[in-house]
């Protein structure tokens, strides 16, 4: 088999995952896109391991390790997303803007005027 087939498939999967990470709003959909990117890397590792006929089979061992680490990552990530959802009532990534700097600096009142209530909500959420 031509080596370009699995390599190009992995590249396209990685790009699709990249689009999903950048374009999705729900945090769980972002996690799904991260899974797609990790799987693209796994396909590359397996294809190059089979091509090189490695005696240590480093590619396949690394693939197994990446699968286990991805399982750990999805568990921790979902726990964090659930905690954010419990504190905020939504898991949208682009609404979590607490650490974003406004144009007036981080301590100046924002342009909306409702900053004090926002800050109280933040204090409740972090307490």
């Amino acid at each position: 088999m031509h080596l370009a087939y699995p390599a190009v498939l992995a590249v396209l999967l990685f790009s699709i995952g990249l689009y999903g990470v950048l374009a999705r709003r729900n945090a769980i959909l972002v996690l799904m896109s991260v899974e797609l990117m990790l799987n693209a890397v796994n396909l590359n590792l397996v294809a190059f391991d089979v091509w090189l006929r490695d005696t240590l089979h480093a590619g396949q061992a690394l693939t197994l390790f990446i699968i286990a680490i991805a399982a750990a990552e999805i568990g921790i990530g979902l726990a964090i997303v659930l905690m954010v959802y419990r504190n905020r009532g939504s898991s949208d990534v682009d609404r979590l803007r607490d650490t974003a700097e406004t144009a007036h600096g981080p301590d100046a009142p924002g342009p909306h005027g409702g900053t004090s209530t926002d800050r109280e909500e933040k204090a409740e959420a972090t307490a």
């Binding site: 396209l12 790009s15 990249l18 689009y19 950048l22 374009a23 999705r24 709003r25 682009d94």
Partner: peptide, 18 residues
């Protein structure tokens, strides 16, 4: 609202990377 507002930027980045 499943996609955020910057999906065209994301599409451009992904297309260039691909």
């Amino acid at each position: 609202d499943a996609d955020s507002g910057n999906r065209w930027v994301a599409l451009a980045v992904a297309a260039v990377a691909a």
